[in-house]
Design a protein around this nucleic acid. Structure first.
Length: 111
DNA sequence: AGATTGACTAACC
DNA sequence: AGGTTAGCCAATC
């Protein structure tokens, strides 16, 4: 069982970076990792998965490298994903016909 | 302390 | 287009 614990330093860095993403934009696990000098997008996903402050920290603004939706609330489909999609739409994200996100909505970190 | 687990990704078939 | 694989790495058995 996973007990309550304060965020690790790594998780704090990830959560802090989320607040740099403007409303109506998204980034990817890989790009976020690159910004944090972490070469494992998977580790980034792990941190977001364990984000217990969601959606206060905008973890829904992180999607897959191919700009498909990615996961949410520990799942890769079903209801949580529907919620993630609606959150993004409500923020002004535009989706293409194939269901992926408009590349123009991709936020680029400086440095 | 070692193995397992992933909200991943690029590179292959 | 879809599957498999290897590499990645923090957190969790």
């Amino acid at each position: 069982m996973e007990l309550e614990r304060p965020p690790t330093e790594f998780e704090r860095k990830v959560f802090d970076a989320l607040h740099l993403i403007p409303r109506g934009m998204v980034t990817t696990y890989g790009m976020l990792g690159h910004y944090l000098s972490c070469s494992s997008a998977q580790a980034i996903g792990q941190a977001l998965r364990r984000n217990r402050f969601a959606p206060d920290t905008p973890c829904h603004r992180v999607v897959k490298s191919d700009l498909s939706i990615g996961g949410f609330a520990g799942q890769n489909g079903g209801d949580p994903i529907e919620r993630k999609r609606r959150l993004l739409e409500a923020e002004g994200i535009t989706f293409l016909e194939n269901g992926s996100i408009d590349p123009a909505c991709c936020f680029h970190f400086d440095e």
